[in-house]
């Protein structure tokens, strides 16, 4: 087991190197001159040249890559041409906000999806099942940004039950920063009011993001439950008089873990990347909005930083999931 983990960790090195190389290449192949844009329309050729020297963009590309890659290792993720802020410092602020959103969305998807899938399977081919299946088909087709707008329209603008946008009211005092995720920080600080406030802000964006994974978990849970209930060993247990609820507890819920893990692995990249849509609607200050701003101004260091950090998280999460599969299911053997 330990050897397997070490082997997988070593294999991450070429993946990370490849990712940096790919992202660097793409961002330099694309047309567009960030220095020229940042210098402004009235800049002289000399000003542009000195700015480009300052950011090291006058050097040959391999040298630039080497500088960038070695910088990454030392925590230097480059600098925004426009704001002149270091990208690493910006990511430290914006990444936790997006992660909080993604975790909350996955949490909601599991919380609703597993019982929904169970109910759907238990009532297979009767109306609760039909309703769940139609709802999950619709959920996958529903654009996140449209759902986000509809939620805003109903719960913030019409009913005024939830705040319209943002993460935390400007006038209130946020909890001290530990993880950067407001819900967790406020719990750590024991600040109940800050916790409920941040949850209120989190609910609608998280719900808008969770719809697709929710539908997928529901469908997988329904399929695996139907599958398990038809297994011989379950039929045997039932013949021996075991109650339905015990069967579900003993056999069916075990599948909940693996389908949940699969969905997290499938959706983590999709959620991190797609959060930009929900962040745009709710003015949620995460990496999506950060990347959008940088993309519009063709400020490519922040874009590379966001792309790489999402790529790294994607690879790491999938490694952890591979390891967890083995923990919950001994049939999955390590080689």
């Amino acid at each position: 087991m330990i050897r397997f983990i070490i082997r997988r960790l070593v294999l991450l090195v070429p993946v990370f190197v490849g990712l940096t190389l790919l992202v660097f290449t793409i961002s330099h192949v694309l047309p567009g001159d960030p220095v020229k844009l940042a210098a402004g329309p009235q800049a002289t050729a000399e000003e542009i040249a000195s700015l480009s020297r300052e950011f090291g963009m006058d050097r040959p590309l391999p040298q630039q890559y080497w500088h960038y890659a070695t910088g990454l290792l030392q925590g230097d993720w480059g600098q925004s041409v426009l704001t002149r802020r270091p990208v690493a410092a910006d990511l430290k602020i914006y990444l936790p906000a997006t992660l909080e959103l993604v975790f909350a969305a996955i949490f909601l998807a599991i919380l609703i999806g597993i019982p929904a899938g169970l109910i759907s399977a238990m009532t297979a081919n009767r109306w609760p099942d039909y309703l769940t299946r139609i709802l999950s088909l619709a959920s996958i087709a529903m654009p996140r940004f449209f759902l986000a707008l509809v939620l805003q329209l109903i719960f913030a603008m019409s009913l005024a039950w939830l705040p319209l946008n943002g993460r935390f009211p400007i006038i209130d005092l946020p909890p001290p920063t530990i993880t950067g995720m407001l819900t967790i920080d406020s719990l750590l600080a024991g600040d109940w009011l800050a916790f409920t406030t941040s949850c209120e802000h989190l609910l609608m964006p998280a719900l808008a993001m969770s719809l697709s994974p929710l539908a997928t978990i529901t469908r997988m849970m329904r399929a695996s439950t139907l599958d398990v209930l038809q297994q011989d060993y379950v039929l045997a247990e039932r013949a021996l008089g075991l109650s339905q609820s015990l069967i579900i507890l003993k056999y069916v819920l075990r599948n909940a873990f693996s389908s949940t893990l699969t969905v997290i692995g499938l959706y983590i990249g999709w959620l991190l990347s797609g959060s930009v849509l929900v962040e745009t609607v709710f003015d949620w200050p995460g990496i999506g909005l950060y990347a959008t701003k940088a993309i519009v101004t063709q400020d490519f260091m922040p874009v590379m930083g966001v792309t790489l950090s999402i790529g790294f998280i994607f690879v790491l999460v999938n490694l952890v999931i591979d390891l967890l599969y083995g923990v919950i299911n001994p049939k999955v053997r390590y080689q």
Binding site: V15, G18, L19, L30, T307, G311
Partner: peptide, 23 residues
């Protein structure tokens, strides 16, 4: 295939946004 796998780990929407904006 290594190139394909690497492309799959990149955030597709942000990649598409960056390319579209640059073009």
């Amino acid at each position: 295939m290594r190139l394909t796998d690497l492309m799959l780990t990149l955030p597709s929407l942000i990649l598409a946004m960056a390319i579209a904006a640059a073009l």
